[in-house]
């Protein structure tokens, strides 16, 4: 099966479409001029401006905390859900659980955000760091489940059964045999959950309160004012960070498989 000229050009055009805008964005973060269309020389001034932007740095810190906490919670819950869905066969509530998980994947964020906000208002909790974290855990739980589920359903169960036959209690067989085997998927689920949390504007806007402005919320209020090279600078840093992380995770997973 050799790729034809048609498929090669479809793939390369598609990738050019995907990467073109990102490359331009990165390029113009090093532009000395404030104008997008005028290139007036290489400069790091927007990065320097960024370092002095107290509000932006606060937002980065908030986002990082929300991301780490919600990703950890949702990975734990998602792994549990995956275990139940793959292992437990048919049980009462399975359809409900699976239904809620797949519905989260496609649910428009505006609806999720609004409904969670109403919940927080109904139980009368102050909105802020914790409510965003809870909301993000709910959003990313479904993605974490799907990632772990894919790996778990390919895992040979007889290994765990062997451990149990040798006298290990089920929880111990799971922790010492199964978990190390699905660890790359659990790590991938965590990274995915973290990235989604890092990325979310809509749900955070609904569920956050004063003092817990996340980075996308901050970026959004800046973007509304127009194109600003400082946003290009922080975007470039984010893209660099995420790209490095994802490629590293991919290489680790590949080496394991090989």
């Amino acid at each position: 099966m050799r790729p034809s000229v048609f498929s090669l050009s479809a793939v390369s055009l598609g990738l050019a479409f995907l990467y073109g805008p990102i490359v331009l964005l990165i390029l113009y973060s090093f532009n000395d001029s404030r104008l997008v269309t005028v290139w007036s020389g290489f400069s790091l001034r927007w990065y320097r401006a960024l370092l002095q932007d107290r509000q932006m740095l606060d937002a980065v810190w908030t986002t990082a905390r929300v991301g780490v906490l919600s990703a950890t919670l949702s990975t734990i819950l998602g792994t549990l859900a995956a275990v139940a869905l793959v292992r437990a066969g048919r049980f009462r509530g399975r359809t409900g659980l699976a239904g809620m998980i797949y519905a989260t994947l496609v649910m428009p964020e505006v609806i999720l955000g609004l409904s969670l906000l109403l919940l927080f208002v109904a139980v009368d909790v102050a909105r802020g760091f914790w409510t965003v974290t809870l909301a993000h855990t709910t959003l990313t739980l479904a993605y974490a489940t799907v990632v772990v589920q894919a790996r778990l359903s390919g895992f040979d169960r007889s290994l765990e059964e062997a451990a149990q036959d040798l006298g290990a209690p089920p929880w111990r067989a799971f922790l010492t045999v199964t978990l190390p085997n699905i660890a790359p998927a659990v790590a991938a689920a965590w990274i995915l959950a973290f990235t989604l949390s890092l990325d979310d504007l809509v749900i955070a806007s609904f569920t956050s309160g004063p003092g817990a402005t996340t980075l996308p919320m901050r970026l959004y209020s800046q973007v509304r004012l127009g194109v600003n090279p400082e946003i290009n600078a922080i975007s470039t840093l984010l893209i660099g960070l995420v790209t490095t992380g994802v490629i590293a995770a991919w290489l680790v997973q590949r080496r394991r498989r090989a």
Binding site: A81, V83, A84, R87, T104, L112, S115, A122, L141
Partner: peptide, 25 residues
């Protein structure tokens, strides 16, 4: 039966933070 128990926590979580809020909407 044991692996079925794993459904409890994520199930309760989603019921409370995903399904129930729709009722409020």
């Amino acid at each position: 039966d044991r692996s079925r128990l794993a459904a409890i926590l994520p199930g309760l979580w989603l019921a409370a933070f995903f399904a129930f809020p729709f009722v409020l909407v």
